[in-house]
Simulated scan of single mutants.
Amino acid sequence: MSLKSISEQYGTVAVAIHWLSALLIVVVIGSGFRAGAMEDAAALRVHVPIGVVILLLTLVRISWWCFMDYKPASVLMPSWQDHASRAVHILFYVVILGTAASGIGMVILSGAGPIIFGGDLATLTDFFDYPPRRPHGIGARVIIALLILHVGAALFHHLLKRDQLLRRMWFGAR
């Protein structure tokens, strides 16, 4: 498997970014809801750094597609499915970037950075007092909806259509 994509399969870089991002998004959503409910302020020590890594991975992924690689050819599917697939992927990028921006905004406005990265968590202020909190929570819920659509479509192709679509986004030769 090459670093770059070929017409039938995604390359190692795209596959690695995809699956690492997926794993980290699941972790950041879980830690974010725990921290957001103020059940576990220590979850912010996981949530914030991983959120930054997801932001960086997303920027690397966008740059990779724009300047270094191309996506494999689309598989044969009805045009509405192709358009829906493209829309979900674009929305993922937009919502991830927006959610990261609102998270950064909350950390900056609240002055929570030094607390999250080693201070006394008991001194944290309530993030609900800061305007970026609402779009951050909405973004998290939109990401969950997009994940459900994305995983559902991948499973549909893999289990029902059996068109090998999911194999294109995995390591190794097809």
Results as ranks from 00 to 15, higher is better:
156 F>A: 11
83 H>D: 12
89 H>R: 15
65 W>D: 08
164 Q>L: 13
100 A>S: 12
103 G>D: 01
70 Y>C: 07
109 L>I: 11
130 Y>S: 00
144 I>K: 03
51 G>M: 09
117 F>R: 02
166 L>Q: 01
70 Y>E: 13
152 G>A: 03
75 V>R: 09
75 V>Y: 05
58 T>K: 10
148 I>D: 09
55 L>E: 00
63 S>K: 08
128 F>Q: 13
50 I>L: 07
79 S>H: 08
103 G>Y: 02
152 G>W: 12
127 F>N: 01
156 F>I: 12
56 L>F: 13
157 H>F: 08
48 V>H: 14
67 F>S: 12
57 L>W: 05
107 V>N: 11
99 T>D: 01
51 G>L: 03
115 I>F: 00
159 L>K: 09
172 G>V: 12
154 A>W: 00
52 V>L: 14
117 F>A: 07
106 M>Y: 09
113 G>L: 06
143 I>M: 11
135 P>F: 03
100 A>T: 09
51 G>Q: 03
122 A>N: 13
159 L>M: 14
54 I>C: 00
80 W>Y: 05
139 G>E: 01
124 L>E: 05
94 V>N: 11
53 V>K: 06
105 G>S: 05
128 F>C: 09
52 V>F: 14
51 G>N: 02
112 A>R: 03
151 V>K: 09
111 G>P: 04
110 S>W: 00
107 V>S: 13
82 D>L: 10
73 A>Y: 07
137 G>D: 04
86 R>A: 11
76 L>G: 10
61 R>E: 00
57 L>C: 14
146 L>C: 12
48 V>W: 14
50 I>A: 06
83 H>V: 11
67 F>T: 15
89 H>D: 14
148 I>R: 08
135 P>G: 03
160 L>M: 13
